[in-house]
Design a protein around this nucleic acid. Structure first.
Length: 420
RNA sequence: GGAGAGAUGGCUGAGCGGUCAAAAGCACCUGACUGUAAAUCAGGCGCCUUCGGGCUACGUAGGUUCAAAUCCUGCUCUCUCCA
């Protein structure tokens, strides 16, 4: 971690040594507050999908540690701000979402993304879930502008990096979207008023938005609020993290199976293993240091532990074990495991024969037959572990193994079972 | 309200009457090498196909032409400058 200001609070200490620390608005003062009693901190989450994804996991872990070190975490659902859409670093507007969709998303996220990490309840350090729609939707334009609009200067708002992209690209940034940062600033003030919340956290891309809230707290209520951001997650080779061939790495098992989730972690770059272990597992640091020091292909052991621990936290120990077991059978023994995706076909279809290309599309390996054909012609398709080069191949009953399935593979990593 | 510029595949961005399913780069997929890693190299990257070809695409609607992403007109949207 290098040399850093010595902090006394458990929470900031954990943030620093586990790699969550990027910027803080007034470290010494915040440290002091955290030492003086139970505090509350919040992070805002989008309600634009049915699930959060790995990109949100940093924030979730920050809240996890906040609670573990004796404080009260607040998860703020952006039910109101989702009606606007954060324009930060985006080069075009998002579609606006209707109320019902947003409400349904929030329900899903509550149930599948937070509960594993945070203990909710009424106790002093129990987590709290709030929705900014509760206060934003009732705002009156004129009085809001008069009371809070005067604390924001456009000059300053234009100086934020988050809007610069849009301006530089000469891509339209609507007033609606421009207001996002004002709303987010107001959220902070509102949470301070309601719960005495002193700290907002987030990824480093949220710094500007958070600081707006800090400034507003100072100007409107003469209180000192704090900002703490974590380094944005990128891979060692500089790519954004959190994408798979299937899209975002969702936390909701209904959107990404625990097996695929496990696989995501198993396939991270060597150079990222230590960083990810610190950030997304709760293993002791000395153990992580050992794992991180493994060289060459031994690092794979560390990746398996990362995958297991990360999956366990999110989907539970049983799911993590199953995923690990399937992975072992598939990759280390060349077999199959229970967690592999499977599709079911009717026996009658199979007895007349099913074109391999159709099967590949049905299994989700290709979006079209043309794409499936290219996969076959490129040598990327195996059927029961034998490469199939013939794009006219037809699967028949005789291709079923003695266990009653056909194992289809696309590339080295994607496998599926065809069952009757 | 006035004057210019522009809208091309997931993104950036060439093309400016046929040789354009559209250069190049990025992203993505597959193969080789490996360690289910990175880097590198090779191939692929609209849809369908009996592999001959067919179909739909260059903001949108029309038009001119044997032929249009390319020319003309209306519309929509964006940017810049002026009021």
């Amino acid at each position: 971690m290098g040399i850093m200001t010595a902090v006394k609070s458990d929470f900031l200490h954990v943030m620093q040594e586990r790699g969550f620390f990027h910027q803080c608005s007034d470290l010494a003062a915040l440290d002091q507050k955290l030492c003086s009693g139970v505090q509350s901190a919040y992070i805002g989450f989008d309600a634009t999908a049915q699930s959060l994804h790995i990109g949100n996991l940093t924030g979730i872990m920050m809240l996890y540690w906040f609670q573990q070190t004796g404080h009260k975490p607040i998860t703020l659902m952006g039910g109101g701000t989702s009606k606007i859409g954060d324009p930060s670093f985006k080069d075009e507007s998002r579609k606006l979402m209707d109320d019902d969709t947003i409400a349904a998303n929030i329900e899903q996220i509550k149930a599948t993304c937070f509960r594993q990490f945070l203990r909710y309840g009424d106790g002093p350090t129990d987590a709290l879930m709030v929705n900014n729609d509760d206060w934003l939707s009732g705002l009156h334009y004129l009085s809001f502008l008069r009371d809070y609009g005067r604390h924001f200067t456009v000059n300053r708002m234009l100086s934020f990096d988050s809007v610069k992209l849009r301006l530089e690209r000469e891509s339209p940034l609507t007033l609606l979207e421009f207001n996002y940062m004002v709303m987010q600033g107001y959220d902070f003030l509102e949470l301070h008023r309601r719960y005495g919340t002193l700290l907002q956290m987030g990824g480093s891309d949220q710094w500007g938005n958070i600081i707006n809230g800090v400034d507003l707290g100072h100007k409107a209520d003469q209180v000192q609020l704090f900002a703490l951001t974590a380094p944005l997650l990128t891979t060692a080779s500089g790519q954004k993290m959190g994408k798979t061939e299937k899209g975002a790495v969702w936390l909701n098992a209904a959107m990404l199976t625990p097996y695929d989730y496990w696989q995501y972690w198993r396939n991270v770059e060597d150079a990222d293993v230590g960083k990810l272990l610190r950030r997304f597992t709760i293993l002791p640091l000395d153990e992580i240091a050992k794992l991180e020091s493994l060289g060459g292909s031994d690092i794979n052991e560390a990746k398996k532990i990362l995958a297991f621990e990360a999956t366990k936290i999110c989907h539970g120990e049983a799911a993590a074990q199953e995923a690990a077991a399937t992975a072992q059978k598939v990759f280390e023994q060349g077999g199959v495991g229970d967690d592999l995706p499977s599709i079911t076909v009717e026996r009658a279809r199979l007895s007349t024969g099913i074109a391999l290309l159709d099967l590949l599309v049905e299994a989700g390996f290709a979006a079209s037959k043309g794409e499936a054909r290219r996969l076959v012609q490129g040598g990327g398709i195996r059927c029961n572990d034998n490469i199939v080069n013939d794009d006219k191949f037809v699967a028949k009953e005789s291709d079923l193994t003695s266990e009653g399935y056909i194992k289809l593979s696309a590339g080295k990593k994607r496998h599926a079972l065809v069952r009757i």
